[in-house]
Structures are given as C-alpha cells and as structure tokens.
Design a protein around this nucleic acid. Structure first.
Length: 295
DNA sequence: CCGAACGTATTC
DNA sequence: GAATACGTTCGG
C-alpha cells in the first residue's frame, strides 16, 4: 500500500526520526484512499460547471511527488488553488465530512424529485449509505486502481449539487461520519442498521462509540495530512513531552480530533452547512423545475 | 500488561 | 488561548 505518505511537516523536512510504533496506515481498511480536496461549498460555488470533478479529486503535483517521486502525472486542472499545500490538511477530512453531510441531507440518487424531497426524508440517504458500504468494501482496492476508483469505479454515484454526476466514494461514509465517536451526528448518518453494518465489517461497537454512553475515544481519521504522516517531529512540545504529555506529535494530530465534536464551533459549522446544503439542494431542484418549465 | 494517545482539567 | 499534566481508553 502506498497511501501512507511521509509528508514533511512544518518542523523539518530532513527529520528522519520515527517513534517506535507509528501506525503507517489508516486505522480502518476502508480509509485507504484520500482524494477529497475541497469543501463542498467550494464545489458548489465553482465558477465553471464544466470543471472536471475528477480534477478536484486529484492530489497536487506536490502531493504526487511526496507519494510517488518517480511517477509525476498532472492530475488536475491548474486553475485550482493548491489546497493540498495547506499545512493543516483540514480540507481533506473536512471535504469528506461535508460531502457526507450533504449526503445525509439530500442524497440525490437520480431524480430532481428526490433532490427536492431530500431535505425532508433521510430514508434514501440511509439506504444509500448502507448500499455504498456494501459494495464499497467488495471492490478492488489495488494501488493502480486508485485513479479509476476515484473517478469512475466508485460504488456510488449520485448527483449532488452541481448538476453533474459526482463520484462519491462509499469509503467516505465510514471515513467522515461514522468515526465520530461522540455520536453527535453518527446517529443522523445511519440508523441501527448502519451501525450493524460496520460492526459486521469488523468494527467493534466500542470503537464506533456505540457501546456506552460514557466518553469514548475518537479515532484518527487516517485520511488527513497529519494522520498520513509517518514520522514524529521529535521537536514539538508533544514529542518532547511525550512521557508526561501522552500526546501524539502535533504535526500528526488528526484534524478531526482537533475539533470538538460537540463544541459550539462544530455545531454552528454543521448547522451552517446544513442550511446551505439543503438550501442549495432545494434551490437546485427549483431551478431545474423552472428550467423545465421554461424549456 | 504495556505503550500510545485521546479527553479534559489545570496552569500560565 | 496555548501549554502542560494526568486519567483513561484502546489495541497489540
């Protein structure tokens, strides 16, 4: 597997230290690929509907070099700001998260009718999520298939907000939503059947934050830039103070875990996005119906 | 059992 | 608000 990227952190590029036991892989098998470079709002507000979504999903050349030094291949439109260069890497997990929530709100499998109904009914979303998980794990996942899967080989395609089909990798579901141990929006993402699905996949209820009402440790998303980093900087306070601090290297701290699941920022962010997403979805449906009336 | 690391309280 | 310390959870 070549997805574990040793990304040179802000501290020092030549640092070659690695702690005794550093997880080189995402914590879950379904988190093998990450190519979700932007916030949904960015997708939505894209000035050009003709922009190949594929381009958005591809890592930057810099990211490519980091992963495969000998295999440089331009994989996205140059006009897009290089969010991959962000030191935070927030966009990765964030985008997945946002997309996930968009799916909750208005998974629009095909028709504009459903797009209109999306905001009211979560049933299609739940079913879609379950199906996505089902065939998502079954598919091939070799490194060479990465590109294919990202674009066309993904298990679930649906038409979210751009008016164009968007490849929605089923891995995003467990990736973005189901890891939120606090259950703050996991429950919204899936019902009991969804949880059972994951449990059936091998994730213990405890690891999913389901087992008890007590505080559960969340897990690293395994997808964000810090998570994909393999080496500790050995220079940050967390590294220097590991014995007493019990903290992971600052530059390896998962972006998801940095957020407070139940914090005010989180809530407002979610609700804010929800409003925008559903608003957009409804607007899209309306626009389409208008267009249908017009033409 | 032990090490890693998350969550949270405390300190600065 | 950041840094630190410690209890706790979790996986090997």
């Amino acid at each position: 597997m070549s997805t574990a990227v040793d990304i040179a952190g802000p501290s020092s590029p030549d640092q070659a230290h690695s702690s005794a036991k550093i997880p080189n892989e995402p914590l879950r098998p379904s988190l093998k690929r990450s190519n979700h470079p932007y916030s949904l709002s960015h997708y939505i507000s894209t000035p050009s509907p003709a922009v190949d979504v594929k381009g958005l999903i591809q890592p930057s050349p810099a990211q490519q070099r980091a992963a495969q030094p000998t295999h440089a291949k331009p994989r996205r439109a140059p006009s897009w700001p290089d969010m991959w260069e962000s030191p935070s890497g927030l966009h990765l997990a964030h985008a997945a998260e946002l997309l996930m929530r968009a799916g909750l709100l208005a998974l629009t499998p095909a028709t504009t009718e459903q797009a209109g109904l999306g905001a009211q009914s979560s049933q299609p979303a739940k079913r879609e999520a379950a199906e996505a998980r089902g065939d998502g794990e079954g598919g091939g996942s070799g490194p060479e298939e990465e590109e294919e899967e990202d674009s066309s080989g993904c298990g679930t395609d649906f038409q979210p907000f751009l008016g164009a089909w968007f490849p929605f990798s089923p891995t995003l579901f467990p990736l973005a939503g189901f890891q939120m141990g606090g259950g703050h929006w996991r429950s919204a993402a899936m019902g009991a059947e969804g949880i059972e699905g994951l449990v059936a996949e091998g994730y213990s209820p405890g690891s999913l934050g389901v087992s008890s009402g007590g505080r559960r440790k969340r897990k690293r998303c395994g997808e964000c830039v810090p998570c994909r980093r393999q080496t500790n900087c050995e220079q940050c306070s967390s590294c220097r103070n590991r014995k007493r601090g019990h903290q992971i290297c600052k530059y390896r701290k998962c972006e998801e875990l940095k957020r407070k699941p139940g914090g005010p920022g989180f809530e407002s962010r979610v609700s804010g996005f929800d409003l925008r997403a559903s608003d957009f979805t409804l607007g899209l449906a309306q626009e389409r119906s208008n267009g249908a009336l017009d033409g």
